[in-house]
Structures are given as structure tokens and as C-alpha cells.
């Protein structure tokens, strides 16, 4: 049996929840951050930078670098590594400053 983090700590998680990410439904475990749920689904980048439009995701993992900014339920610039995933969240990849709505 392949080793994994859940096996290492003998995890017996509560039933999975689901979040909507970029139009598709992803499972998440209760208590995981949005970044952890995305990593678990193999998604490593969910933001593009303002100038170079380059892909970014979680980097420092503890809320210091702000590289993992993401739009959660319409609120831009949330730190995915800190925000817990909640059942039914709509999570949107963030482009640039995430404030395109203000330019309309």
C-alpha cells in the first residue's frame, strides 16, 4: 500500500465536503484549507500575477507571502492557505489584482 500523509497519521476523516473550483466540483476534507484541497486535487496554481500574468499558488504555506491569493465566494485576495474550505464554497482563480469588477 502506498504511503500517504493521511495514512501516516491514521486519519479517519469526517465525510468529505465539496467546493466549486473554476466550474468543477472538487472534494475537500473538513478542516482542510482551500489551498490544501486544491493541492489534493493536483492543482498547484490558481492566480495570475498583475504584470506578467504568470501562474502562482501556495508558497510559504503560513499566510506570510500572499502568493496564494484567491477569490472565495466573490471576495478577492483571500489567502488560500489560511481560509478553511467550507461545503459549497465557490472558489474562483484570481486574475491580476482580482478587482476587475471595479473597472466595469
Amino acid at each position: 500500500m502506498p504511503r500517504d500523509p493521511a495514512g501516516l497519521v491514521r486519519s479517519r476523516p469526517q465525510p468529505a465536503i465539496s467546493i466549486d473550483y473554476a466550474g468543477s466540483t472538487l472534494p475537500a476534507l473538513p478542516g482542510q484549507s482551500i489551498a490544501a484541497a486544491l493541492w489534493a486535487a493536483g492543482v498547484l496554481s490558481w492566480r495570475t500575477t498583475r504584470d506578467g500574468r504568470r501562474p502562482r499558488g501556495a508558497f510559504c504555506g503560513i499566510g506570510v507571502c500572499f502568493d496564494c491569493l484567491i477569490t472565495v465566494n466573490g471576495r478577492p485576495n483571500q489567502r488560500a492557505c489560511l481560509v478553511p474550505a467550507r461545503d459549497g464554497d465557490t472558489v474562483t482563480p484570481q486574475e491580476g489584482h482580482g478587482r476587475a469588477d471595479l473597472a466595469r
Binding site: P5, A6, A36, W39, A40
Partner: peptide, 20 residues
């Protein structure tokens, strides 16, 4: 993407049980 802090990778495993 995929380049992460060493402490960051450890933090994500410790709290989220996920690997990069």
C-alpha cells in the same frame, strides 16, 4: 508553481495532510 517553501511544504502536510 511547485516551488514551495520548505517550511511551507511541511506546514501543508502537518495541517492539511497534502503534498506538493
Amino acid at each position: 508553481p511547485g516551488v514551495v517553501g520548505a517550511g511551507g511544504a511541511q506546514a501543508m502536510v502537518k495541517s492539511g495532510l497534502v503534498l506538493p
